[in-house]
Design a protein around this nucleic acid. Structure first.
Lengths: 345, 345
DNA sequence: CTGTTAGCGCGTTCAT
DNA sequence: ATGAACGCGCTAACAG
């Protein structure tokens, strides 16, 4: 409507018959300004709804007050949870969050990075795509003197602070839980051999099985590629139709577990009585499906907070070169798919 | 590492022995520059990885190249899908997306708005909270001369362009589908009486029932408040235990439908043979649950694209005052929960 | 076709 | 305690 012109420092200086710098200093609480003029200026500013032009401030200070975040997919329960945590934390410190996604494509991740550099975010939070190995495009950020924090899906080729979920411990806990329930022949449908999270989860599985002196059978280890529900269904079939079928399956992620459950149900296996199933990531679907799915929760919101706090600390200290890695503990959520004690209660 | 100082227009002007403005014009493809110097400048820029300082450009042009988007929840399948569409569209036009969430709290929506104004986004995409009625805080955007596009959850108190899903048509189609299937006593678990989407869906239900001369029974209309799975369960019970139980239920949203299904299953009703169920929004869960849930898809990705394109058009034309409303058609996805023809096939 | 001049709005010396 | 002057990096109006 009224299209009020935005009032500037210059305006308030002119109106009050003082200099621009005095006005600036008064507003920003500098030393050596009389209380009198401070009050004068502040009152005037308040009254006329003065709000500093961030563009100018930022140009002057050479920063943007923006933090970029790049994830493989936004439409994804875990990542949107992380973003949510990042936004709330950033807000608290006066930063905005600028979101982009790679679609798990290296090509698009590079574009997203370049755009971010171009639009000048002050720092970057990133969970890399499956295709990213070296991450040279991310190094460009570091070269610009801008801090980067990696989270969840990371690469060790980049010397940045990292916030990761303790996949090993999560998997170990999940499999140990299965063992505690009395399952003895535990299989795993694992993820790619070249993705760190996947490797760690597998290691956790292996160690738990061996620590408890259970049968360790390479036929019970199946590697999937798409990490899809279809694969879960197919590989569960393969496992159960083998000569020596397992009595429990630890799955790399919830959709895979869901596929496995679907096969098991269609083939007439009782869950959890005959076969126990545990997934990973605690997707929304875990408590919706029937039987509900035990899963390892990754505390996405916490990760978002931790990663953002870390980045903001770097932003404020300008003490780049830190390389700390925070491991967020996981939390096993036991539901019907593996809970024998729950039966009948 | 090398902390390369960023090269500026000034640098390239000095090195090439030309003026800054010539360099600027050459880079930006202005009229009246010799092809010779254009090539000279562009080559030099390319070679030294010149990238314009957006902060300066933006200050000069008085814009930010950022678009803000405020939604009730980011961790929500529909909204994250919209955001995803917005991001891809914005990217295409050289804009970044700055995300914030209100948590369906008016208080936090106001804060988000103020922050956005402060950090100077050029325009705003917003889906208002349940608590927002007048939207005075949004008007501040308009008063600044910045365009706003509302989507999905809107208020008519604000004269802005809007992109909405055709809730009426979606509901009408859903209920008509139930009728086509042969259901005769159709109930609805509807949403709040003061939320536009909810009202429209109810109207669609009512019209479909009346158009087909079916029994219209106020006992079959239940209003829920939280729009939660629990309410779905509870109200389905209430409906089915009444004297004159319905044979189909149209639910305001998928979680409610899921709750209803859970009750129906636990009470021994066959779905869809005895009772048909249709939800709204086509959440991820719809095809995961068993029986899979028929639902009205809202084309979130399309909405994100449409809303963003609309906003960018306003941004470029500076022709505020438009007030068009785009209705994105819905798409009924028929699954097991209402598909009698599918039985046995 | 190109250079000079003026800011955009602000923070920050260096004077006084 | 305050003002003048400068510059962040860039675009645009005005000369020539």
């Amino acid at each position: 409507m009224s299209e009020k012109r935005k009032i500037t420092l210059k305006d308030i200086a002119r109106e009050l018959g003082i200099s621009i710098s005095t006005a600036s200093r008064a507003l920003n609480g500098y030393e050596g300004i009389s209380d009198e003029t401070i009050k004068l200026v502040k009152d005037f500013a308040e009254k006329h709804h003065y709000v500093p032009n961030l563009l100018a401030v930022n140009l002057r200070k050479n920063r943007t007050s923006n933090i970029g975040i790049i994830v493989p997919q936004i439409v994804h329960h875990f990542f949107s949870t992380v973003i949510s945590g990042a936004i709330e934390t950033a807000k608290k410190h006066g930063y905005n969050i600028l979101v982009s996604q790679s679609g798990d494509l290296l090509k698009d991740e590079i574009i997203a990075c370049r755009t971010m550099i171009g639009s000048s975010v002050d720092g970057l939070l990133i969970s890399i795509s499956n295709e990213t190995i070296e991450g040279e495009h991310i190094r460009e950020f570091l070269d610009e003197g801008k801090p980067v924090v990696q989270f969840d899906k990371i690469t060790d080729h980049l010397e940045t602070p990292k916030v990761i979920v303790d996949d090993f411990q999560g998997a170990y806990a999940a499999v140990t839980h299965l063992i505690d329930q009395g399952y003895k022949k535990i299989a795993t449908i694992r993820g790619r051999l070249d993705v760190k999270n996947s490797i760690e989860r597998y290691k956790g599985y292996e160690k738990a099985v061996k620590d408890h002196q259970l049968e360790f059978n390479s036929d019970w280890i199946i590697t999937c590629k798409n990490i899809s529900e279809e694969e879960g269904y197919e590989f569960a079939r393969k496992l159960m139709e083998s000569k020596n079928p397992p009595d429990a399956i630890f799955c790399i992620t919830d959709p895979v577990a869901l596929g496995a459950i679907k096969f098991l149900k269609s083939a007439g296996f009782e869950i959890p009585e005959q076969v126990g199933v545990v997934g990973f990531s605690n997707w929304e679907l875990a408590e919706i499906v029937s039987p509900s799915l035990s899963s390892v929760d990754q505390h996405g919101y916490q990760m978002g907070i931790k990663a953002t706090e870390l980045l903001i600390r770097l932003l404020k200290d300008h003490s780049l070169g830190e390389n700390e890695t925070i491991e967020v503990k996981t939390n096993l959520i036991i539901r019907e798919s593996s809970d024998l004690n729950f039966i009948g209660s």
